[in-house]
């Protein structure tokens, strides 16, 4: 299908973009890479009066590392993350996860800010932001504010962004030496949306796991930190009994949904499978895995 008619404006600065958002309110949609928005327009799931194209605000396309923080501009493309030595070295979870995002032609164009602001519950990156304890940097009429990833994603395509606010970047703490990660998803085809997936980050010492953050995606309406399950394995020697205990706790953490891809029971089952694989992966030596990303 073809998109319905809309007006188009292409601001050259963040300030100009946010004043346009304030002016047009709910009638406007922001477009960056357009890899989620244009399908929705073509399918007429969305019919905005005006598109505000932030794609030419060059100052928003960057990746930098300083003071223990990785800073990524909203317009950094998936391919930029994929090719970035800084990301491979300092946020290996994200380096691995990005290989699961869509296909090359889409990664060449799609942006991390667009992905996060779109907040598709089946997307990999929102869950990574939760696992990594990232902070979203938001610009609005009254200046900048920062929101933790765990408070940013509110529901299906729903975020903490107000209609006159723009996501301009994100900040991720540099992954500590010795910290470990796990990422996997189940999908029908490489690059398709996941049926169930898990992004995890933890400190591992002498076979026990600390500060484990288990961020599930494609299960329920938003990415979810499985805090109950993580508590079950904290500071325990990892073995079958502990893992089984944590798997049972997932029922308290997750609200799996039914759709044409999988039933809620199947999603909960897949979440348990992912947890088991994650735990055995985390307690193994990960030196090889990190090297492979660099």
């Amino acid at each position: 299908m073809k998109a319905s008619d809309f007006n188009y404006v292409c601001p050259s600065s963040v300030e100009e973009a946010t004043s346009l958002l304030a002016l047009h309110g709910d009638g406007a949609k922001v477009i960056a890479g357009g890899q989620s928005l244009v399908p929705a327009l073509n399918l007429r799931l969305l019919a905005p009066e005006i598109l505000i194209d932030i794609g030419r605000i060059g100052t928003l396309r960057y990746i930098s590392v300083a003071d223990g923080m990785v800073r990524i501009g909203a317009l950094a493309r998936h391919v930029d993350l994929l090719n970035s030595q800084e990301i491979a070295e300092h946020v290996p979870l994200l380096a691995e996860a990005i290989t699961y995002v869509a296909h090359p032609a889409i990664r060449n164009r799609g942006t991390i800010g667009g992905n996060l602001a779109h907040a598709d519950p089946a997307s990999e990156l929102p869950a990574c932001m939760m696992a990594l304890d990232a902070v979203m940097v938001i610009s609005g009429p009254s200046g900048e504010r920062r929101v933790a990833a765990s408070e940013f994603f509110l529901g299906i395509y729903e975020t903490a962004l107000a209609p006159d606010e723009l996501l301009i970047g994100l900040e991720i703490p540099v992954t500590a030496a010795g910290s470990r990660f796990y990422f996997h998803e189940f999908s029908r085809r490489n690059g398709d949306f996941a049926i169930a997936g898990l992004a995890a980050q933890a400190n591992v010492r002498d076979g026990t796991v600390e500060s484990l953050r288990l961020a599930y995606f494609a299960i329920g309406g938003r990415p979810t930190l499985a805090a109950h399950a993580a508590a079950k394995v904290a500071r325990q020697p990892i073995g079958p009994a502990v893992i089984a205990d944590a798997q049972s706790a997932l029922a308290e953490d997750l609200e799996p949904h039914d759709d044409q891809q999988a039933s809620s029971a199947m999603r909960l089952h897949l979440a348990k499978v992912l947890l088991e694989r994650c735990m055995s992966d985390l307690v193994q030596d990960q030196e090889m895995k990190r090297k492979a990303l660099q």
């Binding site: 477009i31 357009g34 890899q35 244009v38 194209d53 060449n108 164009r109």
Partner: peptide, 12 residues
Amino acid sequence: DIVRGCLVLAVQ
């Protein structure tokens, strides 16, 4: 770089 022609607006 390769892109989807249907996911890029001509104005972009």
